[in-house]
Design a protein around this nucleic acid. Structure first.
Lengths: 340, 340
DNA sequence: AAATTTTATGCAAACGTTTGAATTATTGGA
DNA sequence: TCCAATAATTCAAACGTTTGCATAAAATTT
């Protein structure tokens, strides 16, 4: 009796009912009498019954599991988004299955396949920096499994819903802020343009330069993956000979921090001689001296909107066509601090 | 034909084999001929077959899902641990299901129940600050589902494996470091003692005071939850009238940062007039001016050890009795920086 | 060539739940 | 009192795998 985990069959036997009735009672089916429902639920409690979601998923073809594929759990933006996503999904009775790609396309493929095998009811994806071919997600489309991309999304058309921050606007605002603060020359640390984030922020940068009639110099724009190591190499390059750029717009906060520390070590006065703007409002930017001006992306909002979109699709509230046509763009905000 | 997702039945039909043979072939059963295996696998590829893990889980009673219950994904330590955990589990073919308690006991109960219902093959838990009654995990014990606590673990005996950093030693090292640096009076921001972390760090603090023959003053010890807000209140209290404490050991980095910023605003010279040690090596501590001395907990190591322990239990490599008797304690390290 | 062992495959039940259709019990109306 | 309508319950199949046991085919021994 220790061995055996209780099932609806046990409940049925105990109450001399059929399993069908028990199943319906537990699911609050309208045709079951109130009295029976109560009896069944009491017996279920007494037996410590818990629905076997495998069995019910197999029969009913839903698992209540939502998959999430993400580059790295520990990056600030994503960690904050996950928090919001998980909280919201739990309210709706869904579990969240997380897979990390570590920004490797191959891993992304494996995870997509694993998520599909485990029959997630929906999938949320922030892709790697390098994913340009999204065909490993086709199987979700073909099988009509709701699919939502957020933050890191396909650049070319792909028939799935997209939720992202307004990176173009963010890039524009960051650059414009530097321009308005008087920078005549603004360098830009971008990431690989294969990623929509950097592509859009870069576009914003370019347009802001144009608007404020500032020169574009290709020696002052970089497209390496924005690791601390790369940022340091770039910083060395930027400040090897004068004139130095008067402003730096870094497309993530990690590299903004590296540049700031390097410039500080060079005794450059910030913001007097050099102004810096980062991206993401990483908690570190508020704490470093001087604090770094940056773009807030509201990761919790992005996460919540992504979940909301997924749920809408799952509930059929949104027509398939509409999903695909209209990316959802969430607002960003310039956080003014001492560095610019 | 769009409608229908392929199953082993389809493969069997296509090849004129029985489903049993197909199943065995896919699982590399020794009694299936090499030729058949190849045929089956080719056909499986051709049909884009993917095992239905619900069905196989239902029948075979394993799901390849591991549950993780954690206070908040976005806290540095936990985010880093999750990264390690997920990476390691994926290598073994497991999926990770994450639930966040937001440090609420009620949520922890709900999640434990949900994880059980979805038949995770094992569960990893970092409990809330306030969990003292762990009976909502009993169902895992009773059903013999591997259960591992890490970081935030039961204080009283509970029959499950435990993996944690050496908090006593960390508390001792932090305090001793301040003492050796010349602090005659050392305040301590602890968290609630219902949590093993704070209890052990506090014990280390006490013992270090004793060893260095420093006075213990109860006005200089605090047991509130270590939020920024609470830390600020405490800082105000600490520095309301002289003599100020010469050293502060904060049991997490967030509160160390708040204290440092408050003291800096008061124009206290750090480390000359006030020395500060935090706990966890949060990335912010390296970046603030002056950088904060802290205790590194190696979250990735903790995560990996926790997974290793879980896998050992699942593979039966470790006798049940041994699991429970011996908590696994991982080393911590003092990171010396400018603040002390 | 028959008997025996070995190797490969098939049969059918089982896992726990859900659900359309069928059946039984209850109620109300004439 | 009987019939019809409604409410409550049951039957049985289905979801896609896995697996013990039985069987068939091939290889080996006598």
């Amino acid at each position: 009796m220790q061995k055996h985990e209780s099932t609806i069959v046990d409940i049925a036997k105990a109450l001399n009912l059929s399993v069908a009735t028990v199943s319906r009672a537990l699911n609050d089916h309208p045709k079951i009498s109130a009295a029976t429902k109560i009896k069944v639920k009491e017996q279920a409690n007494a037996l410590e019954y818990r629905r076997n979601t495998l069995a019910s998923g197999l029969r009913g073809s839903r698992t209540n599991n939502i998959g999430l594929i993400i580059p790295r759990v520990s990056m600030y933006f994503h960690a904050a988004a996950i928090t919001a996503i998980q909280n919201k999904l739990h309210l709706q009775g869904y579990n969240l299955i997380i897979g990390q790609t570590n920004d490797a396309v191959e891993m992304e493929k494996q995870l997509a396949s694993a998520m599909f095998s485990s029959r997630v009811d929906g999938l949320m994806v922030a892709s790697t920096f390098y994913t340009t071919d999204f065909s490993h997600f086709d199987v979700f489309i073909r099988n009509n499994i709701p699919l939502v991309f957020f933050d890191r999304v396909p650049i070319d058309f792909y028939p799935a819903q997209v939720i992202k921050g307004d990176d173009y606007q963010g890039g524009f605002m960051a650059t414009a802020h530097l321009a308005k603060a008087g920078c005549k020359t603004i360098a830009h640390l971008s990431g690989p343009l294969s990623c929509n984030l950097y592509k859009d922020r870069y576009a914003g940068y370019i347009d802001a330069l144009r608007k404020y009639k500032l020169p574009f110099k290709k020696e002052w724009v970089f497209f390496n993956e924005l690791t601390p190591e790369n940022a340091l190499l770039i910083a060395k390059q930027l400040f090897v000979k004068k004139p130095y750029p008067q402003g730096v717009f870094a497309s993530n906060d990690t590299s903004a921090i590296v540049v700031l520390e390097y410039a500080r070590a060079l005794q450059l006065r910030i913001p007097a001689e050099l102004k810096i703007v980062g991206y993401s409002n990483d908690p570190r930017t508020a704490i470093i001296t001087p604090a770094i001006t940056t773009i807030e992306q509201f990761p919790d909002k992005v996460g919540e909107r992504a979940v909301a979109a997924l749920l809408e699709i799952m509930n059929g509230a949104r027509r398939k066509k509409d999903q695909v046509q209209t990316p959802i763009i969430t607002a960003v905000e310039l956080i003014r601090r001492a560095s610019a």
